[in-house]
Design a protein around this nucleic acid. Structure first.
Length: 364
DNA sequence: GTATGCTTTCGGC
DNA sequence: TTACGGCCGAAAGCATAC
């Protein structure tokens, strides 16, 4: 038995890079791909930017106006997102990559894990060659660059991929894990968010190296058995999560920006009813039923709130969905003194609809 | 005392 | 000086089950 060999492939500044391939003349200019909200000329946020723009201070999530300010007096190009195109390019690449792997797992639109253990006989030497070949193949087929991390598991591969980008390739062999891991801040580990980071800092754990040296039993005392053991293992680069195809999304949501900030219920429901219809159509198309209905609101001050309710009986009915959304917003609007800027609907607890099965009630 | 489930918030892309 | 998307899964925090 030898180590697994896992590759993480991460497409570089994906949306902006796709735009560059469509129009190569913009490649040496700052390129900013934006989600325009439609509320005013430049209201909206930056989805992603190429490295030319990043060097000048543009970041994902930034208001478009702010990005424009940072790039004034440059020949920057601002483009609206073209999600259909990115989905298409992504699907083409993912289908290529699938053939390079013993098993395959896509994460988001621009990342994928490949277990290539059998493919290369568990030899890290050959991993470099395979990674280069993969990069070349993606480049030939789509003109896109990517960054690749290779390691004995998903956790190590992910951290490896972050070490050099764009167009990077980093291989971390099992015996190199400690050297790469120990200086990294603990929040490089999944499941270490702001709260956990803070908690760890009070224990004088600041780097993954600190975590690795920390007594396991103490970790378990503080974080519980599951999480404590997870942290202990992760700090040593131990991770046994398999690379496996992901099922369908666990939730479907729609959110959009209102024409103006409001506390008016019918104005809000006009928008959310449209969203419910879209979600319902998607549920129908995929023959799914839902168990939990949620609403999302972004307030005037950009703070985010949400409410949800789980149903006794899962449903695929539009009238039920719209009804629950209405009730949730009714309550929410009366409780709120801050106006709503953006509103959304989210359904989760999705399951396959059992067709041709009589409802229990039909027997009563 | 730990696991699980539910709701809300956070954060990556 | 301010400015501000849409979507997803993970994390957090609490209640209840085992």
């Amino acid at each position: 038995m030898h180590d697994r060999v896992i590759m993480l492939i991460d497409l570089d500044y994906f949306y902006a890079q796709v735009e560059e391939t469509r129009n190569p003349s913009i490649s040496n200019k700052p390129v900013v791909v934006c989600v325009y909200s439609g509320r005013s000329e430049d209201s909206g946020a930056v989805s992603t930017a190429n490295y030319v723009a990043r060097k000048l201070g543009v970041k994902s999530g930034m208001p478009i106006v702010l990005a424009k300010a940072k790039l004034r007096n440059t020949d920057a190009v601002f483009l609206p997102v073209n999600n259909g195109l990115y989905e298409e390019v992504s699907a083409r690449i993912m289908n290529l990559l699938r053939d390079y792997a013993d098993s395959f797992e896509q994460v988001g639109i621009d990342e994928a894990y490949l277990d290539v253990t059998q493919r290369i006989g568990g030899n890290f030497q050959d991993a470099a060659k395979l990674a280069q070949t993969t990069k070349k193949e993606i480049k030939t087929q789509t003109s896109l660059t990517c960054s690749i991390g290779v390691g004995p598991n998903k956790l190590v591969a992910k951290i490896a991929a972050d070490i050099q980008k764009p167009d990077g390739l980093t291989i971390i062999r099992p015996e190199q894990i400690a050297d790469y891991f120990s200086p990294l801040p603990i929040d490089h580990l999944i499941r270490v968010g702001a709260k956990t980071k803070e908690k760890m800092q009070t224990l004088a754990i600041n780097t993954i190296g600190d975590l690795a040296k920390y007594d396991v039993q103490k970790l378990i005392d503080v974080f519980g058995k599951t999480l404590g053991l997870y942290f202990h293992n992760a700090s040593a680069g131990i991770d046994n999560e398999p690379v496996q195809e992901r099922g369908e999304a666990e939730s479907i949501s729609r959110i959009s920006t209102l024409k103006e900030d409001t506390l008016d219920l019918s104005f809000i429901l006009e928008k959310t009813n449209q969203q419910c219809k879209e979600i319902h159509a998607e549920l129908e198309a995929r023959t799914l039923i839902l168990r939990t209905v949620g609403i999302i609101a972004v307030m005037k001050d950009i703070s985010i709130r949400s409410r949800s309710r789980s149903l006794e009986i899962p449903t695929n009915r539009l009238d039920v969905l719209e009804g629950v959304v209405k009730e949730l917003f009714e309550k929410f609007v009366t409780e709120s003194n801050l106006e709503f800027r953006r509103v959304g609907v989210k359904v989760s607890g999705l399951a396959r609809e059992q067709k041709n099965q009589k409802q229990l009630t039909s027997f009563i």
